[in-house]
Amino acid sequence: MNPLQDLLQQIQEQELWEQELELARNEYLKVSGSKDTRVYFVASGSLRAFVTDEEEEHTIRFAYSGDLVAALDSFVTEAPSPLYIQAIKKCSLKVLSKKAFLELVSASPQNMQHWQNLLLQLVYQQMEREQDLLTSSPQERYRRVLERSPRLFQEIPHRYIASYLRMTPETLSRIKKS
């Protein structure tokens, strides 16, 4: 079993979910300047995490059904963060407090190893993305993300994919046609 599935199974068996949330399309789970230390399981739907500057939104990550999502910066520091998390499609989420999650992770060396593995996967994915953004052409970024995450193109509107790839929607459209 993979680390995420093992932890999710334990959360379910121990009935640790504290509540369920429904988000409408475009509704925010978290807004910039707020603190949120909870962990969410995406039962259905999809979300995006992004930050803004004066001119535009910059999409950082996506979450789909079956994923965990959190404002990791706020989770770790317990401070407000500039991150937004928004539903792209109608979402059903299950909610777990930081305290309950960390108690589960600390309950066994295996759980701690699962958590560390999940964090290492996240760090690796971020490093790959940063490298792509810094060194790859738009065409290469598109090709690599298509290879890594074909699900992205099935579930996420192109304007958000373009933001994630740091290109305009028009550039993405041209690349897809070529």
Rank of each mutant, 00 (worst) to 15 (best):
V42S: 11
Y84I: 12
Q131C: 09
F101T: 06
Y64E: 05
K35V: 00
R48H: 11
L68R: 14
F50N: 10
A87H: 12
A87D: 02
E128L: 15
D67F: 02
D132I: 06
S92Y: 03
E55W: 14
D36M: 01
L133S: 02
F62C: 05
L47C: 05
Y40C: 15
L72Y: 09
W115D: 02
E103I: 07
Q126C: 01
T52V: 14
R129H: 12
S44M: 03
Q113G: 13
M127Y: 11
T135P: 01
R38I: 03
L72T: 09
N117A: 05
Y40P: 15
V69D: 00
E78W: 00
A70K: 07
E130P: 00
Q116V: 14
L96V: 06
E130L: 14
D53H: 12
V123L: 04
W115C: 12
L104W: 08
Q126R: 15
S106H: 10
F75D: 13
G45M: 01
K94A: 12
F50M: 09
V51Q: 14
L122V: 03
Q116R: 07
A49L: 07
E56S: 11
E57C: 06
L96C: 05
Q121N: 12
A49T: 08
S81P: 10
S136C: 04
N117P: 10
A71C: 08
Q126Y: 12
S46R: 15
A71Q: 07
S34K: 06
S108E: 01
K94C: 04
S65I: 04
S34Q: 13
E130K: 09
S65D: 04
Q121P: 14
S34L: 04
E57H: 02
A49S: 14
N111Q: 02
A79E: 15
L102T: 06
F41M: 15
H114I: 05
V51Y: 10
Y64D: 03
A71E: 01
D36F: 14
S46Y: 13
P82W: 00
T52M: 14
K99Q: 11
I60H: 15
D67A: 09
A107V: 03
K89E: 00
S34N: 08
L119K: 07
E56D: 09
Y40G: 15
L83F: 00
D53T: 08
L68F: 01
H114V: 11
